[in-house]
Amino acid sequence: MNSILSIILKRLLIGLLTLWIVTIIIFAAIELLPGDIATEMLGQAATEESLAAFREKFDLNRPVHERYFSWLGGAIIGDFGISLANQRPISELIGHRVANTFFLAGYAAAFAVPIAVVSGMLAALYNGSVFDRVLSSSTLAAISFPEFFIAYILILIFSVGLGWFPSLANVDVDMGLGERLYRTFLPAMTLTLIVLAYMMRMTRAAILNLLALPYIEMAHLKGIKRWRVIAVHALPNALAPIINVIALNLAYLIVGVVLVEVVFVYPGLGQILVDAVSNRDVTVVQAACLIFAATYILLNLLADILSIIANPRLLHPR
């Protein structure tokens, strides 16, 4: 067990190191933007006094490294500073939106992951059959369309046509869970369709890769049913690549939702990021970048650790 603990610990440290480097890059990139932030925000006509006051308020007079460390220190405890555009604390501004984005991603994942893994297994089981081909080509078709297109098609069918679900996913804090799930159903479906194909195809391919191996043949020759051979003998050994592709897609669910959120007017991070970029609200952009980067790194870290645990050679050393 010691070796596996030390491997996981090493991965954790590497993850933290990556995250730290990312904070430096984000901070430096914003610093390197041309022009003076105070002038940019207040306009050319601003007086010297108001510029000085702005700089004072946002700590722009202190040296770069001092500002970096106070920003980093704040970010660790969830305080991302103050929005340049409307002078409110960023955490207050984006707090519930972050929660909304994660909620939508989790909702979509709750559909996408089980559907992808099970249909991938079925496709492997009926490899080469009509079912396999239809499944593969329809999921491929789904990722070939841009996400906003899928979103509009779903709205057209389920909202305008059948009237089952609302086309606007305008949730608020006081809403109950049921209501929330109902209102966000269409965006969740859109995201599910987008991420399904990768995960399903990877599951199928990872399992098919194993089917020629002696221990799978052995299971067949022991008279084990085909479905059990796939689910019990092949799947556990195919987990590592599947976990990795799931983690990448989960990260995409969080980072890549901008367009879908805009289409459904969903109050998530995507909307505010779009606003912040057009307003040059750099502190909000910084915060959003940091959250996205942290999500990516943490999910990949989790996938790494799960893959290690899924390997019996590491889990049960000699």
Binding site: L213, Y215, N237, P312, R313
Partner: peptide
Amino acid sequence: AAAAFNPA
């Protein structure tokens, strides 16, 4: 035998 036993 090493290949015919499921490693999991």
